[in-house]
Computed example of a mutant assay.
Amino acid sequence: MNVLYKELTAHHDISIYDTDTFSDEKGIFRILEFSNQAMQGAMDLERPDRILFEYPRAMIHLMQVNSPSFERVFLIGHGIGTIASHLKEKRFTVAELDEHVVALSRRYFGYNQDNVHIGDGRQLLTNEPPDTYDYILVDAFTEKGTPLPLTSLTFFQIVQEKLDAEGAILLNLTGKGAHDPLLTAIHTTLSEVFNYVKAYALPSEGRRDLQNMILMGQNKPITCQMRHMAGFVEIEPGYGHILMDEA
């Protein structure tokens, strides 16, 4: 491992390094990582256009198959800009809390679009006009997971206001399967706002292992082709409590 950059910012403990192994594959890979070995982005330096993580591939498929002609996307959480880079022909508005992450994505990962706004993603979305977006994506993490203000009932109501009539929200989450208390709560809360909600998980080896999960909500039936879901399978979360903003 060759460490290229390391810094503790006001928001994250950031590391960038090159490695010759990624998911048991040999090659030349560059990684953006936050504290506790939480990978936020990865690039194959020999094939920079390749998407290494499964969840962006699955999210892109869900976007393309449910609204093939979509144009406008609001994305909370920049990372190295994987999804926006892959969909260059679409109009992205990206919200990122940490300006250092944006600068590093340009310096070390070649992000070259002028569409990132620095600030709190929920507040930036609140300031957008209604009925503007085809998709709103939430891909934002702290050490404790996805922040509550991005999973509460009030947030999902804001999201619905900013989406067009057939628009959808997709969230990248982590949890311990269909019965994870936080996942069931987010799923239940999302179902209060959208008529159709589906959950997908990337299978893990052990029942207690953290899994990568995607939630999608929209007001028309959700479809997908499982062979294009990068290994994600549909799951049925139980009923949970409704998440409210903290007083």
Rank of each mutant, 00 (worst) to 15 (best):
V116I: 14
D180Q: 08
T142M: 06
I214A: 00
G145K: 01
A103G: 08
M213T: 05
I118F: 08
G177Y: 02
M226D: 15
L32C: 11
Y135I: 04
D49V: 04
I214E: 06
M213A: 11
F29D: 01
M216N: 08
D114M: 12
D209A: 13
N195T: 12
M244N: 12
T189V: 11
T188G: 08
G167Q: 10
F74V: 04
L62F: 09
L202N: 01
L183T: 07
I51K: 09
T184Y: 06
M43Q: 14
S191M: 10
N115T: 02
F34A: 15
F53G: 11
G27D: 04
E33W: 11
R208I: 05
Y200P: 00
A42P: 07
G206W: 08
L4T: 05
Q64A: 14
I80Y: 00
N172E: 12
G240C: 09
M229I: 01
L137A: 02
E161V: 14
N36Q: 09
Q225P: 05
V233Q: 05
Q40L: 03
L243S: 08
E192S: 08
D98L: 06
K198M: 14
G121R: 03
S23K: 12
E46K: 13
G110H: 05
P147H: 02
D134N: 10
F53R: 02
E143W: 09
S35I: 07
I31Y: 05
G240K: 07
P221N: 09
F156R: 01
G217M: 01
H100R: 14
P221S: 01
F232C: 13
R227A: 11
I76Q: 13
R106S: 07
L4D: 03
L104K: 09
V116H: 10
A84W: 01
Q157V: 01
Q37G: 12
E89R: 08
I186G: 00
L45S: 08
L45Q: 13
N127Y: 06
V159D: 06
R91F: 11
K88N: 03
E143P: 02
T189C: 01
